[in-house]
């Protein structure tokens, strides 16, 4: 059983954290990852920094820029994945990347290096299913899950096409927009989770705009198998320039609080199995 499958076989929804490799610096980035893991992440998404991250909001865009200014290259990202893998042998790791990074390296080489470093999945944010045949064979060859995205605007026909190729888990985009914190959760999450749930047994993780403990609880209550938090954590890095100890402490506190959102919500223990069978 893969690490990703193993994680989602557990009853409780997974808490998924996101960080940009090399933010705020190449070595500090490893300490960020270790702190997030120690604070109780169930799955870590590591983004490859890119010059033009169009799917991301301003907070994560600035993190990409910080990482690039620090000189982070894809080689550094794979090195970070290897170190995280050594530190947390059982933790599922998903690489989050824009396609030109993969294209430039060559999809064959990219997926081979991702697998060798210990990544379990790859999510290419700007490679919709129409274009994905360019990478599908390499993902399969190296045993890497291709994490697929479904948006609120995705038509039922496209959902079917996307789900035919998806593996690992499905990333549901909670809202029409880019990544970033929102005061209120979008209203359509339960509907999207329910609609996709009818079509697949793959675990469903929800991301974009989730930044508070009560959001985390509400997404879990909507029937998601995983909750993804990105900008709210990345912002903590941005807000502590030159104060790494304070930054790591704030990350620990924030992750603890958001995890407690998962535990405090009465809906959290409605596992996927129960919902499907019930």
């Amino acid at each position: 059983m893969s690490r990703i499958t193993g994680l989602f076989a557990l009853e409780n929804p997974a808490f998924i954290g996101f960080t940009v490799a090399g933010d705020p610096g190449i070595e500090a980035s490893l300490r960020v990852a270790k702190t997030m893991i120690d604070a109780g992440l169930d799955l870590l998404e590591i983004a490859v920094p890119y010059s033009d991250p169009v799917a991301d909001g301003p907070v994560i865009e600035r993190a990409h820029a910080r990482a690039l200014r620090a000189g982070t290259t894809p080689d550094d990202v794979f090195a970070l994945v290897r170190e995280v893998r050594d530190y947390a042998p059982a933790l599922p790791i998903v690489l989050f990347t824009y396609y030109n990074i993969v294209y430039r390296r060559g999809p064959g080489r990219f997926f081979a290096e991702a697998a060798a470093a210990g990544a379990d999945g790859v999510l290419i944010v700007d490679l919709p299913s129409e274009e994905s045949s360019e990478v599908t064979p390499y993902a399969a060859r190296h045993g890497i899950d291709r994490i697929a995205l479904i948006a609120p605007t995705t038509s039922p026909e496209r959902q079917n096409a996307i789900l035919r190729e998806a593996s690992g888990f499905v990333y549901l985009i909670s809202l029409e927009g880019v990544t970033g914190e929102r005061d209120r959760l979008p209203s359509g999450i339960a509907g999207l989770v329910g609609a996709v749930r009818e079509k697949t047994d793959l675990p469903l993780a929800v991301g974009f705009g989730i930044s508070r403990p009560e959001h985390v609880g509400a997404v879990a209550a909507a029937g998601a198998n995983g909750v993804i938090v990105g900008s709210a954590l990345v912002r903590i890095i941005e807000e502590h320039p030159g104060d790494e100890a304070g930054m790591l402490e704030s990350l620990r506190t924030a992750i603890g609080a958001m995890r407690s959102g998962l535990a405090a919500d009465p809906g959290h223990d409605i596992s996927r199995r129960e919902r499907v069978e019930g």
Binding site: V54, A55, Y99, V125, D126, L127, P128, E130, E131, L149, I150, A151, P152, T153, T154, S155, R158, I162, I173, E176, G177
Partner: peptide, 14 residues
């Protein structure tokens, strides 16, 4: 050419 965009944009392009 092609359509290398986030999934959210695909419906608008279609």
């Amino acid at each position: 050419g092609g359509q290398y965009v986030p999934e959210t944009l695909m419906s608008a392009l279609i």
